[in-house]
Write a protein that binds this DNA or RNA. Structure first.
Lengths: 170, 170
DNA sequence: GGAATATAATTTAGATCCATACTATATGGT
DNA sequence: ACCATATAGTATGGATCTAAATTATATTCC
């Protein structure tokens, strides 16, 4: 009754079984993909948990980070979208939330009335300086669990994979 | 005017600059985290693009995969939730979508009227066998761009990181 | 100068996900 | 048998994200 061998699917044996019915499945490569997805999923959950205590999401934090970095000048929503790797529609929503909370402000562009400059407020900079230090320390603590050669190896491998993803489905 | 040095934020120089204002930032560890997030994000986009041609999402595909694997027997929504790593509420929604399209069916449990058995239909099995082979080949093609020692190294490193994530924020 | 086109931001509809609350059913202690 | 508690699945409301349509403004090409 207490059938408690439930686990995150699929484990090694699941893949071996499935390979018998779908021979195109290569067990080692799928195991790598699944642990990659799992690791980043858990990482993302951890970040979300930390940031949500301050009413932030990863998307909002990334925008604050960009605006904090080039303090004063301000950025266009379309620039934020490109740098963040999300659509302009998504940026609109995130800016809405950050503006509502007083962390950023929209300023009409002087020459081109279609454009809007987004700037971080002092409250936003304050929040950034409150949130990031611990976040950075936590990340360092995590990465320090692997050796420096492993860190370099990981960077190189991920760079290769990232470069090849666009060719994957062709 | 053609200020086209826009890139995915943050690059190496951005981090070096930011480190001067927030000294807790360790540049190498943050670079690893960002490329990890970026790689899995792109991977996820690629999977989404492929699956959406068949009206599927990654969540739905994972459920079909589990039900396909233990063909016939059927699984409870709560079991699917544990194996998939999402909440029961999320499973309800995914099952709703899959059932609407005729890929799975809900069957009342004979003894415990609170429970529902979810089974894959022949149409669902057919779809699974249409979608997965190419997906598996694509994944293998991607992973083959790194050497076997690199593959083993990647697995080991990710296993270590995954194990340490729960301790990160303590 | 005026029409076609391009661009910036936003709006809308829809999907995925979560946390929380809810309904129905089962179980255990007395 | 009864009542408190636990459990299974679902509903609700909210956040994030996308793709596609919309609005407003610039630019370009006769």
């Amino acid at each position: 009754m207490d059938n408690q061998q439930l686990h995150t699917f699929p484990n090694h044996q699941d893949l071996v079984d499935l390979q018998k019915r779908i021979p195109q499945l290569d067990v080692p490569s799928m195991e790598i993909i699944f642990i990659l997805l799992k690791t980043v999923g858990e990482l993302s959950n951890a970040f979300h948990t930390y940031l949500s205590d301050y009413g932030l999401s990863q998307g909002k934090m990334k925008i604050l980070l960009q605006l904090y970095k080039d303090s004063g000048k301000g950025l266009l929503p379309s620039e934020l979208a490109i740098c963040s790797g999300v659509t302009r529609g998504t940026i609109t929503g995130l800016i809405d939330g950050l503006e509502k909370d007083g962390y950023v402000e929209r300023i009409h562009h002087k020459n081109d009335r279609r454009m809007v400059m987004v700037k971080i407020t002092s409250l936003g900079a304050e929040l950034t300086e409150k949130v990031l230090p611990k976040h950075f320390l936590d990340v360092k603590k995590l990465i320090d669990h692997i050796s420096v050669p492993e860190q370099e190896s990981l960077m190189n491998i991920l760079r290769k994979l990232l470069a090849e993803i666009p060719t994957m489905h062709s």
